[in-house]
Design a protein around this nucleic acid. Sequence first.
DNA 1: CTGAAAGCGCTTACAG
DNA 2: CTGAAAGCGCTTACAG
Lengths: 340, 340
Amino acid sequence: MKGKATSLDIAHLAGVSQPTVSRALRGSPMVNEETRRRILAIAEQLNYKVDKNASSLRRQHSGTLALLLFEDPTSDESHINPFFLPMLGSITRACARHGQDLLISFQQLSDDWHADYADSNKADGLILLGYGDYLAYQGKLEKLVEQGTQFVRWGAVLPGQPGLSIGCDNLGGGRQAGEHLASLGRKRVAFLGDASSHYPEFHDRYLGCDQALREAGAAMDPALQIDAESSEDSGYAAARLLLDRDAAFDAVFAASDLIAIGALRALAERGLRIPEDVAVIGFDDIPAARIATPALTTVFQDTNRAGELLVEALVGLVNGEPTESMRLPTSLVVRKSSSG
Amino acid sequence: MKGKATSLDIAHLAGVSQPTVSRALRGSPMVNEETRRRILAIAEQLNYKVDKNASSLRRQHSGTLALLLFEDPTSDESHINPFFLPMLGSITRACARHGQDLLISFQQLSDDWHADYADSNKADGLILLGYGDYLAYQGKLEKLVEQGTQFVRWGAVLPGQPGLSIGCDNLGGGRQAGEHLASLGRKRVAFLGDASSHYPEFHDRYLGCDQALREAGAAMDPALQIDAESSEDSGYAAARLLLDRDAAFDAVFAASDLIAIGALRALAERGLRIPEDVAVIGFDDIPAARIATPALTTVFQDTNRAGELLVEALVGLVNGEPTESMRLPTSLVVRKSSSG
DNA sequence: CTGAAAGCGCTTACAG
DNA sequence: CTGAAAGCGCTTACAG
């Protein structure tokens, strides 16, 4: 036997036809039990594995999902947004549980990205992870829908959105942050992050916090909002801008933990005590939040559950089952940066 | 046109045979320039993409690599070893540059893991990442070689090893750690990590440190060595064991940053000042090392370069080019935990 | 430069 | 329960 064994090789050795081998291997009920055992034994002995290319070609179905991770082109090339890491892990595990293989690829946000994996029949569906300007992104989602590409994305769940989305309850998370700050008596809350409709997740977090503050007789002040993208450097820069404005504030709500960690550094450099002078709260609960000095209060998103749901939803979609967008609850994690 | 367009559809529209379409699309020089342009235009308009299953089946070559990430079954299910993350990123990017798709999968170390991806022609070769007992692992590597599976692994580069390995210069890295500690006048260096041949990377780090200390008139003391696997909890536990031994030491060399960060916590809990009472040095330079309190001195491994080399080596191997194992240099990163 | 033919290794009606 | 036949959509000798 030279090269890899094929089902035909096994058929010869077992004294049956090749289709019978195929049936036996995939557990078809219409194969004689003894014949099946014989075939399985030979297959094992030859270390035979069904050729997935042939199988996928014939079945028009690859048993593979593709994960497209969108990168902010401005961010450090070598680092993946740490928020996505546990999600990546849980997606990988969920795929294994569902018997799906997983292709992974990074996409530049600026790219004219495509659904190549789906178009070339290499994957049955796509999982889209990644921040970026939603308005620019939306057009591409519409194109995917138009082409009949199956996909789910992680992100803000909005009405009338193209395709399927799974995201956390950003509004609720923002409320939790706002309620917490209000309960500490903080009324002048700065927000670091783009709060426009280009970034609907950040936008909702801002709105939620504002709602909670209003219920406590305060409100977000636009003069205390500074744009920032989700990176430590951007958070550092935004906090410095805020400080230079010389407007009074007693709390910072950062749109993400990375922004918050950058802000922590800028605030400390100016000699501000955290949380005595300024309470700081982030969003995501990435591993670094716990290690930060002081440890960062934040709004937790269940990325493990999220990964599972993304895979389940996509598998459902591919199998033609009715599947819906979904919003996951968040929870507040109080640490020293707000209640030292 | 219903469903996805095929090369035959394009052939009809372009008024040529299907093989000509195939040739034009893959840039064969033996197609009339004008014909090619016409075909390409139609293909673009139809959003045609070559069916990878058909193509791979025919060519017996998938243009895909598979990354198998071995997990320590004892570690927290939801976290990937942070050391691997930048590597994962650079592997993904390197694959894109080489025109390779990347499949990713986690494997339990205890699994009877397999080269399914390669056996089923779904991938042309494997990249193996992951720690674990080397002696148990080696047998599986030999089996891969025997079956003719192409693979590269990240890990200790040892003589007479089955297959191709890329790893850092662990001995040299250990020496850098030892020299640094010796230059600070530290002579009683504890080592946290398994230093046996079951973990050749840790073993080499230990040996390197010992060599450097000996040149400075000291040496590692086996009484100051405690086994630990690469996790924060394990490092914490190991440091406590060490403290309970009541043996004097003025430095800790941890086999990895995670171990070091756990040790930092245990030492601080006992009221030891770092670095005044105990200098601490890790290995890897994961992102958390910079954030730790105090910031952790460590031995840097170039994971970005490593990822690239792994992909390059595997692609070379798959293409039948002569390819060799390789050892990457390390460098010392001095921070407050050794020189506050 | 182009086309007709064969074949990669499966899966799935269709007959028996 | 089993086999002969067709076909998934390509790529690649082989002829011309």
